[in-house]
């Protein structure tokens, strides 16, 4: 077993940690970097609770070695909101009750964020498929699907408004 000093880019910041090579990104985020927003429900890749974005794509932190994502841009739920300005997904989830216990929400939100970044106006069915690897035990998913579509709508309106105002494509994050 060997330990390495690792620099991870998490939520836009370079974070240094001395990491056992066999430790997963989940362990390093939660236990070394104290970013406990990322949850875990099985640690075997079966529930999606630990989903984080690696270079913008949803990955399972429980099956990713931290050493394997050195140099990648990692986004966790803590990195979604700008200070004082929640991600439109977070606002929509709050308004529509898409987070009940909230335990699946960190993973659900980043999966949804990746979807909207790749496909700003998805259909309901596309949202369902994009979130099919994130289990939720509380909501019955309806509010989650609605919230993602609402956030997409608002993203779209914001982009359109920005465009009309000559601001171009500013993005919302």
């Amino acid at each position: 077993m060997s330990r390495r000093l690792l620099v991870l880019r998490v939520n836009g910041l370079a974070r240094e940690a001395a990491v056992d090579e066999h430790h997963t990104l989940l362990e390093v985020l939660r236990e070394d970097l104290h970013l406990t927003g990322t949850k875990h429900g099985c640690e075997l890749g079966e529930c999606g609770a630990c989903t984080v974005l690696v270079d913008g794509e949803p990955w399972l932190a429980c099956l990713t070695l931290a050493v394997d994502v050195e140099g990648c841009e990692i986004t966790t739920v803590e990195g979604l909101a700008a200070p004082g300005r929640p991600d439109p997904l977070q606002s929509a989830f709050a308004e529509l009750g898409a987070a009940q216990c909230g335990y699946c929400s960190p993973g659900m939100l980043v999966s949804a964020r990746a979807l909207l970044d790749a496909n700003p106006s998805p259909t309901r069915d596309e949202v369902r498929h994009a979130l099919a690897g994130n289990l939720c035990r509380c909501t019955g998913y309806e509010a989650i699907l609605d919230a993602v579509l609402l956030a997409a709508d608002r993203d779209g309106s914001a982009r359109a408004a920005a465009h009309v105002a000559g601001g171009g494509d500013r993005g919302d994050r």
Partner: peptide
């Protein structure tokens, strides 16, 4: 809601 949606 926000606390549960931000990792807080």
């Amino acid at each position: 809601a926000m606390a549960r949606l931000t990792g807080e």
